[in-house]
Computed example of a mutant assay.
Amino acid sequence: MADNQRTQIKATIRRAMKTAQSATNELDAQAMKELTVLYRSALVEIQQLVTNSADEIGTVRLSQLQVLTRQIEDILMQISQTQSHMIEGYIVEAAKNGGNTFSTSIPVERVSQSIDSAVLAVRTMKQKDGLQLSDRLWRVHQNAKEQLIQVVERAVILGNSATDAAQEFQQRAEAVPLNITQQMNMASGSAINKKLKDALIDDQGAPYHQIKRVMRTEINRAHGVAFQNSAFEDEFVVGTKFKLSPNHPKRDICDMHAKANLYGLGKGVYPRGKSPWPAHPNTLSYEQVVFVDEVSNEDRTGQTNHLDWLKSQSKELQKAILGHDKKVSALHHGHLNKRMIATPWKHLEPALKRKGVDTSSL
Protein backbone atom coordinates (compact mmCIF):
# COMPACT_ATOMS: atom_id res chain seq x y z
CA MET A 1 0.00 0.00 0.00
CA ALA A 2 2.81 2.40 0.93
CA ASP A 3 4.60 1.79 -2.38
CA ASN A 4 1.39 2.38 -4.31
CA GLN A 5 0.76 5.61 -2.41
CA ARG A 6 4.29 6.78 -3.11
CA THR A 7 3.85 6.01 -6.82
CA GLN A 8 0.71 8.13 -6.85
CA ILE A 9 2.52 11.01 -5.10
CA LYS A 10 5.37 10.84 -7.61
CA ALA A 11 2.89 10.91 -10.49
CA THR A 12 1.16 13.92 -8.93
CA ILE A 13 4.49 15.74 -8.56
CA ARG A 14 5.42 15.05 -12.17
CA ARG A 15 2.11 16.45 -13.37
CA ALA A 16 2.62 19.46 -11.13
CA MET A 17 6.11 20.00 -12.59
CA LYS A 18 4.72 20.20 -16.11
CA THR A 19 1.92 22.50 -15.02
CA ALA A 20 4.32 24.76 -13.11
CA GLN A 21 6.78 24.97 -16.02
CA SER A 22 3.96 25.83 -18.41
CA ALA A 23 2.69 28.48 -16.02
CA THR A 24 6.14 30.07 -15.78
CA ASN A 25 6.53 29.96 -19.57
CA GLU A 26 3.23 31.83 -19.84
CA LEU A 27 4.44 34.24 -17.16
CA ASP A 28 7.57 34.88 -19.20
CA ALA A 29 5.53 35.54 -22.34
CA GLN A 30 3.27 37.92 -20.44
CA ALA A 31 6.29 39.78 -19.02
CA MET A 32 7.82 40.18 -22.49
CA LYS A 33 4.54 41.59 -23.85
CA GLU A 34 4.22 44.00 -20.94
CA LEU A 35 7.79 45.22 -21.43
CA THR A 36 7.16 45.76 -25.13
CA VAL A 37 4.09 47.88 -24.39
CA LEU A 38 6.00 49.87 -21.75
CA TYR A 39 8.95 50.67 -24.01
CA ARG A 40 6.95 51.40 -27.15
CA SER A 41 4.60 53.69 -25.24
CA ALA A 42 7.56 55.51 -23.71
CA LEU A 43 9.17 55.84 -27.14
CA VAL A 44 6.02 57.44 -28.55
CA GLU A 45 5.96 59.89 -25.66
CA ILE A 46 9.64 60.78 -26.10
CA GLN A 47 9.28 61.19 -29.85
CA GLN A 48 6.30 63.47 -29.32
CA LEU A 49 8.42 65.64 -27.03
CA VAL A 50 11.09 65.89 -29.74
CA THR A 51 8.53 66.79 -32.39
CA ASN A 52 7.01 69.47 -30.14
CA SER A 53 10.48 70.90 -29.44
CA ALA A 54 11.23 71.45 -33.14
CA ASP A 55 10.73 74.82 -34.80
CA GLU A 56 8.56 75.61 -37.81
CA ILE A 57 10.97 73.88 -40.22
CA GLY A 58 11.23 70.78 -38.01
CA THR A 59 14.65 71.49 -36.46
CA VAL A 60 15.38 71.18 -32.74
CA ARG A 61 17.36 74.23 -31.65
CA LEU A 62 20.00 74.51 -28.96
CA SER A 63 17.65 76.68 -26.92
CA GLN A 64 15.35 73.67 -26.47
CA LEU A 65 18.05 71.14 -25.62
CA GLN A 66 18.18 71.48 -21.83
CA VAL A 67 14.41 71.28 -21.34
CA LEU A 68 14.10 68.38 -23.79
CA THR A 69 16.81 66.26 -22.19
CA ARG A 70 15.31 66.82 -18.73
CA GLN A 71 11.90 65.69 -19.98
CA ILE A 72 13.44 62.57 -21.53
CA GLU A 73 15.22 61.78 -18.27
CA ASP A 74 11.89 62.03 -16.42
CA ILE A 75 10.28 59.48 -18.77
CA LEU A 76 13.23 57.12 -18.45
CA MET A 77 12.98 57.30 -14.65
CA GLN A 78 9.31 56.36 -14.92
CA ILE A 79 10.29 53.36 -17.08
CA SER A 80 12.89 52.35 -14.50
CA GLN A 81 10.42 52.48 -11.61
CA THR A 82 7.73 50.63 -13.54
CA GLN A 83 9.98 47.81 -14.71
CA SER A 84 11.37 47.37 -11.19
CA HIS A 85 7.82 46.86 -9.85
CA MET A 86 7.08 44.52 -12.75
CA ILE A 87 10.05 42.28 -12.18
CA GLU A 88 9.34 42.12 -8.45
CA GLY A 89 5.83 40.84 -9.11
CA TYR A 90 6.90 38.34 -11.74
CA ILE A 91 9.67 36.95 -9.52
CA VAL A 92 7.18 36.26 -6.73
CA GLU A 93 4.74 34.53 -9.10
CA ALA A 94 7.48 32.43 -10.71
CA ALA A 95 8.74 31.36 -7.28
CA LYS A 96 5.21 30.31 -6.31
CA ASN A 97 4.99 28.20 -9.47
CA GLY A 98 8.26 26.43 -8.66
CA GLY A 99 7.70 25.96 -4.93
CA ASN A 100 4.10 24.82 -5.12
CA THR A 101 5.11 21.86 -7.29
CA PHE A 102 5.62 19.91 -4.08
CA SER A 103 2.58 21.14 -2.16
CA THR A 104 1.15 17.60 -2.09
CA SER A 105 4.23 15.96 -0.59
CA ILE A 106 5.69 18.43 1.94
CA PRO A 107 4.08 20.63 4.62
CA VAL A 108 2.65 23.93 3.42
CA GLU A 109 4.88 25.96 5.74
CA ARG A 110 7.96 24.42 4.12
CA VAL A 111 6.62 25.32 0.68
CA SER A 112 6.11 28.91 1.85
CA GLN A 113 9.64 29.02 3.26
CA SER A 114 11.03 27.65 0.00
CA ILE A 115 9.23 30.35 -1.99
CA ASP A 116 10.27 33.16 0.36
CA SER A 117 13.91 32.10 0.41
CA ALA A 118 13.94 31.84 -3.40
CA VAL A 119 12.57 35.37 -3.79
CA LEU A 120 15.17 36.66 -1.31
CA ALA A 121 17.93 34.78 -3.11
CA VAL A 122 17.00 36.29 -6.48
CA ARG A 123 16.91 39.78 -4.98
CA THR A 124 20.24 39.54 -3.19
CA MET A 125 22.29 37.04 -5.22
CA LYS A 126 25.51 38.51 -6.61
CA GLN A 127 26.54 37.39 -10.08
CA LYS A 128 30.10 37.03 -11.38
CA ASP A 129 30.27 40.78 -11.99
CA GLY A 130 29.44 41.44 -8.33
CA LEU A 131 26.05 42.98 -9.09
CA GLN A 132 22.76 42.21 -7.39
CA LEU A 133 19.43 42.47 -9.20
CA SER A 134 18.82 46.07 -8.07
CA ASP A 135 22.29 47.03 -9.34
CA ARG A 136 21.58 45.36 -12.65
CA LEU A 137 18.27 47.19 -13.07
CA TRP A 138 19.94 50.50 -12.20
CA ARG A 139 22.65 49.83 -14.77
CA VAL A 140 20.02 49.31 -17.46
CA HIS A 141 18.43 52.63 -16.48
CA GLN A 142 21.75 54.47 -16.51
CA ASN A 143 22.61 53.03 -19.90
CA ALA A 144 19.24 54.11 -21.28
CA LYS A 145 19.75 57.63 -19.99
CA GLU A 146 23.30 57.89 -21.34
CA GLN A 147 22.41 56.48 -24.75
CA LEU A 148 19.30 58.58 -25.38
CA ILE A 149 20.67 61.84 -24.03
CA GLN A 150 23.81 61.35 -26.09
CA VAL A 151 21.71 60.81 -29.23
CA VAL A 152 19.76 64.03 -28.68
CA GLU A 153 22.70 66.19 -27.60
CA ARG A 154 24.94 65.05 -30.45
CA ALA A 155 22.25 65.56 -33.07
CA VAL A 156 21.20 68.99 -31.85
CA ILE A 157 24.72 70.33 -31.29
CA LEU A 158 26.14 69.07 -34.59
CA GLY A 159 23.00 70.03 -36.49
CA ASN A 160 22.94 73.57 -35.16
CA SER A 161 26.68 74.02 -35.70
CA ALA A 162 26.21 72.88 -39.29
CA THR A 163 23.36 75.36 -39.71
CA ASP A 164 25.66 78.20 -38.59
CA ALA A 165 28.35 77.00 -40.96
CA ALA A 166 25.86 76.80 -43.85
CA GLN A 167 24.78 80.39 -43.25
CA GLU A 168 28.40 81.52 -43.60
CA PHE A 169 28.68 79.75 -46.94
CA GLN A 170 25.40 81.32 -48.08
CA GLN A 171 26.51 84.80 -47.00
CA ARG A 172 29.55 84.36 -49.23
CA ALA A 173 27.26 83.15 -52.02
CA GLU A 174 29.01 79.80 -51.98
CA ALA A 175 27.46 76.37 -52.31
CA VAL A 176 26.94 74.57 -49.01
CA PRO A 177 29.09 71.37 -48.91
CA LEU A 178 27.19 68.10 -48.84
CA ASN A 179 28.61 67.05 -45.46
CA ILE A 180 27.39 70.31 -43.91
CA THR A 181 23.92 69.75 -45.33
CA GLN A 182 23.86 66.20 -43.96
CA GLN A 183 24.86 67.42 -40.50
CA MET A 184 22.14 70.07 -40.61
CA ASN A 185 19.58 67.34 -41.15
CA MET A 186 20.76 65.55 -37.99
CA ALA A 187 18.91 68.11 -35.85
CA SER A 188 15.58 67.51 -37.55
CA GLY A 189 12.90 66.02 -35.30
CA SER A 190 12.35 63.08 -37.63
CA ALA A 191 16.06 62.19 -37.74
CA ILE A 192 16.39 62.43 -33.98
CA ASN A 193 13.30 60.29 -33.47
CA LYS A 194 14.69 57.53 -35.68
CA LYS A 195 17.96 57.54 -33.73
CA LEU A 196 16.03 57.40 -30.46
CA LYS A 197 14.08 54.35 -31.61
CA ASP A 198 17.33 52.60 -32.49
CA ALA A 199 18.96 53.53 -29.18
CA LEU A 200 16.02 52.58 -26.95
CA ILE A 201 14.56 49.54 -28.71
CA ASP A 202 16.01 48.36 -32.01
CA ASP A 203 19.78 48.14 -31.51
CA GLN A 204 21.09 44.80 -30.28
CA GLY A 205 22.39 46.26 -27.03
CA ALA A 206 19.46 48.63 -26.50
CA PRO A 207 17.95 48.97 -22.98
CA TYR A 208 14.81 47.18 -24.17
CA HIS A 209 16.82 44.04 -24.99
CA GLN A 210 18.91 44.39 -21.84
CA ILE A 211 15.87 44.50 -19.55
CA LYS A 212 14.22 41.59 -21.39
CA ARG A 213 17.34 39.55 -20.75
CA VAL A 214 17.39 40.49 -17.06
CA MET A 215 13.68 39.85 -16.54
CA ARG A 216 13.65 36.51 -18.37
CA THR A 217 16.71 35.32 -16.45
CA GLU A 218 15.33 36.28 -13.04
CA ILE A 219 11.84 34.87 -13.68
CA ASN A 220 13.46 31.58 -14.64
CA ARG A 221 15.83 31.74 -11.67
CA ALA A 222 13.02 32.41 -9.18
CA HIS A 223 11.08 29.41 -10.48
CA GLY A 224 14.13 27.15 -10.42
CA VAL A 225 15.44 28.13 -7.00
CA ALA A 226 12.01 27.71 -5.38
CA PHE A 227 11.64 24.37 -7.19
CA GLN A 228 15.01 23.19 -5.86
CA ASN A 229 14.26 24.42 -2.34
CA SER A 230 10.97 22.53 -2.20
CA ALA A 231 12.24 19.45 -4.03
CA PHE A 232 14.89 18.63 -1.47
CA GLU A 233 12.37 18.92 1.35
CA ASP A 234 10.94 15.64 -0.01
CA GLU A 235 12.90 12.78 1.62
CA PHE A 236 12.66 10.64 -1.52
CA VAL A 237 14.24 13.26 -3.83
CA VAL A 238 17.88 12.47 -4.58
CA GLY A 239 18.60 15.18 -7.12
CA THR A 240 17.44 17.45 -9.91
CA LYS A 241 18.00 16.75 -13.58
CA PHE A 242 19.32 19.50 -15.84
CA LYS A 243 17.06 19.50 -18.91
CA LEU A 244 17.62 21.16 -22.27
CA SER A 245 14.69 23.05 -23.68
CA PRO A 246 13.17 21.70 -26.91
CA ASN A 247 14.00 25.18 -28.22
CA HIS A 248 17.67 24.95 -27.18
CA PRO A 249 19.11 27.12 -29.99
CA LYS A 250 22.62 25.68 -30.30
CA ARG A 251 24.98 23.34 -28.50
CA ASP A 252 26.89 24.95 -25.65
CA ILE A 253 27.95 24.31 -22.06
CA CYS A 254 24.37 23.34 -21.21
CA ASP A 255 24.88 20.16 -23.22
CA MET A 256 27.60 19.10 -20.81
CA HIS A 257 25.48 19.92 -17.78
CA ALA A 258 22.59 17.88 -19.19
CA LYS A 259 24.57 14.83 -20.31
CA ALA A 260 27.51 14.27 -17.94
CA ASN A 261 27.01 11.86 -15.03
CA LEU A 262 29.16 13.67 -12.47
CA TYR A 263 27.68 12.33 -9.24
CA GLY A 264 26.68 8.77 -10.03
CA LEU A 265 23.01 9.74 -10.08
CA GLY A 266 22.51 9.63 -13.84
CA LYS A 267 23.17 11.92 -16.77
CA GLY A 268 22.62 15.56 -15.83
CA VAL A 269 21.44 14.74 -12.29
CA TYR A 270 22.81 16.82 -9.40
CA PRO A 271 22.45 16.49 -5.63
CA ARG A 272 21.35 19.38 -3.46
CA GLY A 273 23.49 22.49 -3.92
CA LYS A 274 25.49 21.11 -6.87
CA SER A 275 23.33 21.96 -9.88
CA PRO A 276 24.97 24.35 -12.38
CA TRP A 277 21.54 25.63 -13.42
CA PRO A 278 21.12 28.32 -14.70
CA ALA A 279 24.31 27.99 -16.71
CA HIS A 280 24.03 31.42 -18.33
CA PRO A 281 21.64 34.40 -18.57
CA ASN A 282 18.53 34.11 -20.71
CA THR A 283 18.74 30.34 -20.49
CA LEU A 284 15.94 28.13 -21.80
CA SER A 285 17.05 25.10 -19.78
CA TYR A 286 15.10 23.90 -16.75
CA GLU A 287 15.14 21.14 -14.12
CA GLN A 288 13.13 18.06 -13.22
CA VAL A 289 13.10 16.11 -9.98
CA VAL A 290 14.72 12.66 -9.68
CA PHE A 291 13.66 10.21 -6.96
CA VAL A 292 16.01 7.85 -5.15
CA ASP A 293 14.42 4.71 -6.63
CA GLU A 294 15.05 6.03 -10.17
CA VAL A 295 18.85 5.86 -9.84
CA SER A 296 20.11 2.65 -11.45
CA ASN A 297 23.27 0.62 -10.85
CA GLU A 298 24.42 1.77 -14.29
CA ASP A 299 24.05 5.38 -13.10
CA ARG A 300 26.07 4.66 -9.96
CA THR A 301 28.92 2.94 -11.80
CA GLY A 302 28.92 5.39 -14.72
CA GLN A 303 30.12 8.40 -12.74
CA THR A 304 32.71 10.55 -14.53
CA ASN A 305 34.24 14.01 -14.23
CA HIS A 306 33.99 17.11 -16.41
CA LEU A 307 37.30 16.69 -18.23
CA ASP A 308 37.03 12.96 -18.89
CA TRP A 309 33.49 13.42 -20.17
CA LEU A 310 34.60 16.23 -22.47
CA LYS A 311 37.49 14.18 -23.86
CA SER A 312 35.05 11.39 -24.77
CA GLN A 313 32.91 13.70 -26.91
CA SER A 314 33.24 14.63 -30.58
CA LYS A 315 35.53 17.50 -31.55
CA GLU A 316 32.45 19.42 -32.72
CA LEU A 317 30.76 19.16 -29.33
CA GLN A 318 34.01 19.94 -27.51
CA LYS A 319 34.34 23.17 -29.47
CA ALA A 320 30.66 24.04 -28.93
CA ILE A 321 31.16 23.71 -25.17
CA LEU A 322 34.65 25.20 -24.88
CA GLY A 323 34.11 27.89 -27.51
CA HIS A 324 37.52 27.86 -29.16
CA ASP A 325 39.71 25.42 -31.12
CA LYS A 326 42.74 26.23 -28.95
CA LYS A 327 40.78 25.41 -25.80
CA VAL A 328 40.00 22.02 -27.34
CA SER A 329 43.71 21.52 -27.97
CA ALA A 330 44.52 22.68 -24.42
CA LEU A 331 42.06 20.09 -23.11
CA HIS A 332 43.82 17.25 -24.92
CA HIS A 333 47.25 18.50 -23.83
CA GLY A 334 46.19 18.44 -20.19
CA HIS A 335 46.27 22.20 -19.67
CA LEU A 336 42.65 22.65 -18.62
CA ASN A 337 41.07 22.14 -15.22
CA LYS A 338 37.36 22.13 -14.37
CA ARG A 339 37.28 25.83 -13.49
CA MET A 340 38.63 26.76 -16.93
CA ILE A 341 35.84 25.15 -18.95
CA ALA A 342 33.60 28.23 -18.93
CA THR A 343 36.45 30.77 -19.12
CA PRO A 344 36.60 32.61 -22.49
CA TRP A 345 39.81 31.99 -24.42
CA LYS A 346 40.75 35.68 -24.36
CA HIS A 347 40.96 35.48 -20.57
CA LEU A 348 42.32 31.94 -20.39
CA GLU A 349 45.22 32.37 -22.82
CA PRO A 350 47.11 34.94 -20.68
CA ALA A 351 46.68 32.69 -17.62
CA LEU A 352 48.10 29.70 -19.49
CA LYS A 353 51.02 31.78 -20.74
CA ARG A 354 51.84 32.78 -17.18
CA LYS A 355 52.04 29.06 -16.39
CA GLY A 356 54.55 28.60 -19.18
CA VAL A 357 52.21 27.10 -21.77
CA ASP A 358 53.13 27.87 -25.38
CA THR A 359 49.63 28.75 -26.61
CA SER A 360 50.86 29.45 -30.15
CA SER A 361 51.59 25.74 -30.58
CA LEU A 362 48.12 24.61 -29.51
Rank of each mutant, 00 (worst) to 15 (best):
T163V: 10
W345H: 05
D198R: 13
Q150T: 14
Q5H: 07
L336H: 01
V238S: 13
P107D: 05
R172N: 14
Q8I: 14
V108E: 11
M1Y: 04
R272E: 15
R139P: 01
P246W: 04
I341L: 12
S361D: 09
R14D: 11
E218K: 06
A175S: 11
P249W: 03
S22C: 02
S41H: 09
D203Y: 10
N4M: 10
L352S: 08
N97Q: 13
N52L: 12
A226F: 02
A11C: 00
Q170F: 02
H333L: 07
L62Y: 00
M1A: 04
S114Q: 09
P350F: 04
L49A: 11
T36I: 00
R14C: 05
S80L: 04
T51A: 12
M77D: 14
L38W: 01
Q167I: 11
Q147N: 14
S114P: 02
L65W: 00
Q48R: 15
Y208T: 03
Q81S: 14
R154L: 07
D129T: 12
N247Y: 09
A118R: 01
G323M: 01
A175I: 06
L76Q: 15
Y39T: 03
K311S: 09
D198Q: 13
N297V: 01
V225W: 15
T104Q: 12
S275V: 06
S84W: 01
F236M: 07
L131E: 11
E56H: 08
F232D: 04
K274T: 02
N97M: 09
E168V: 13
A42S: 15
R136S: 08
H280Q: 05
A191C: 04
L352M: 14
R251G: 04
Q71K: 14
F227T: 10
N185F: 07
H347W: 05
L148T: 09
L148V: 07
E45M: 08
Q288M: 12
S105A: 14
H280E: 03
L244Y: 04
R251C: 02
A16R: 14
A222I: 07
M86A: 09
I9G: 02
Q5T: 10
R213Q: 03
K194H: 04
R123N: 13
I57C: 01
V289A: 08
W277Q: 14
L120G: 05
L284F: 06
T12H: 12
I75F: 02
R70D: 13
